[in-house]
Design a binder for these strands. Structure first.
Lengths: 236, 236
DNA sequence: AGCCTTTGGTAATGACGATTTTCACAAGTT
DNA sequence: AACTTGTGAAAATCGTCATTACCAAAGGCT
């Protein structure tokens, strides 16, 4: 089970094949579409046999799930890495940064948003569950930054969960539109719109037009300027 | 070709079958999922034969496209009808109304958002195109109302296209989350969040944090008309 | 009442593609 | 050098469904 073939370890050969299959999957799923991509096509393009395919993945969906996870993980890793660099910047700067890095990462290759926001939707319950997990992660991330902003007194103290979910949706919508548009929309416009929307959503007052805009959280009663104080390090 | 059977005109019988097939499609697509729904299942549930199926539709996708169009048309019809009733109300009231009616219409049956925002995604280029058309319509609708608000001096004069697209995405995200959530989220919270996000996005100043938030359209001129705006948003 | 048209259900066909199996070879091992 | 063991390509199998063709019945028409 473990022989060094062709000068490379079997582990390595395996990993290479897997990688080639993933690349082929990304390409085909976003051009032919997931539904109409055949396993044999993927194998042909990756230069592997169907036998090898089943050694690495259990199904076409398995490939899709892996790609979906990889893309999200990549983006999240970039964002957290960059945010760590500005750990003690003011809250709104961090939020802007978060956005810029996210948009920059995911627009490097239009196939990423295409796969994430179009091809990987409505495929199976498992994939829907995986989508939910990632929405949650991103939403928690955004909500945490918003809460941080509230602690710094630049945003109201309230529950940001639904706002964060809506913002994830807004980003999804913008990117889906971006990747689908024929004369491609300028990336910086997408980024600018996303940033402006996020900032105005987070900084908005709790009540707009005399309407209670949110439940939960404290709010009109007393407010921010919290004991933790600005500048304090925050738990990661 | 035209005989009155069972007391009802053939046209009527045809229409009934079609309707039953659509109902069956909505049910199965949103439970079994579009991919795994078989035509024979739809026929069985609708109480029609496969032969009848092909008299009404060319494929499973045809049914899905029809449902997708119907749901969007229904929502748009409701919204326009209600907006006509408040034709001369102030701009922000109209925007609130738009939202309430939309959310109310589409949350009557969780299968509607499920079909629209999950099952009908990434199925085929035709369906993607149809999606694009509807996003455009809704975005134009929102942008028109925002422009109206600007004309009334309660929002800055600028290009609202991308903002509108992002807002459509936000609504999509919220509704997708709503229909997927196991202990269902309260509808009024979804509606409140969507409304607050839309109002703050539309009323936001052109520049936030010294960053140019939007291109196009005029801008800083005229922007003042709002009272206490997000620019100075603070809790309390 | 008997014929004839339209309809509905069921069975046959056929394609397509996922998954498995076989076969031959290439490269380490002794 | 012979043997053994992974490895890759291709061919065979096996199911699943969409689609179509056929048959039986039911209802109106003369």
């Amino acid at each position: 089970m473990a022989r060094t073939y062709g000068g490379v370890a079997p582990e390595q050969r395996r990993a290479d094949r897997r990688q080639r299959l993933l690349v082929a999957g990304l390409e085909l799923f976003t051009s032919t579409g997931f539904r109409h991509t055949k396993i044999t096509e993927m194998c042909a393009r990756a230069g592997v046999s169907t036998r090898n395919f089943y050694e690495e993945f259990t199904s076409k969906e398995d490939v899709l799930r892996t790609l979906h996870d990889q893309i999200n993980s990549l983006a999240l890793a970039h964002v957290t890495a960059e945010l760590d660099k500005v750990a003690d910047a003011d809250a709104l700067t961090r939020i802007s940064k978060l956005l810029d890095v996210f948009i920059a990462t995911v627009t490097v290759d239009p196939r990423m948003p295409r796969l994430n926001y179009v091809e990987a939707v409505g495929v199976s319950p498992e994939l829907e569950a995986q989508h939910q997990v990632w929405v949650d992660r991103w939403a928690n991330f955004i909500a945490a930054e918003a809460t941080r902003a509230a602690e710094h007194g630049v945003a109201p103290v309230r529950d940001y969960r639904l706002t964060a979910i809506a913002l994830v949706g807004a980003g999804t919508g913008l990117l889906r539109e971006w990747q689908a548009h024929d004369p491609p929309l300028p990336v910086e416009e997408i980024g600018a719109e996303f940033r402006a929307m996020m900032l105005s959503a987070i900084m908005r007052p709790v009540k707009i037009l005399d309407i209670e805009g949110n439940r939960g959280a404290s709010s009109d009663v007393e407010e921010s300027s919290r004991e933790g104080g600005p500048g304090g390090t925050r738990p990661t």
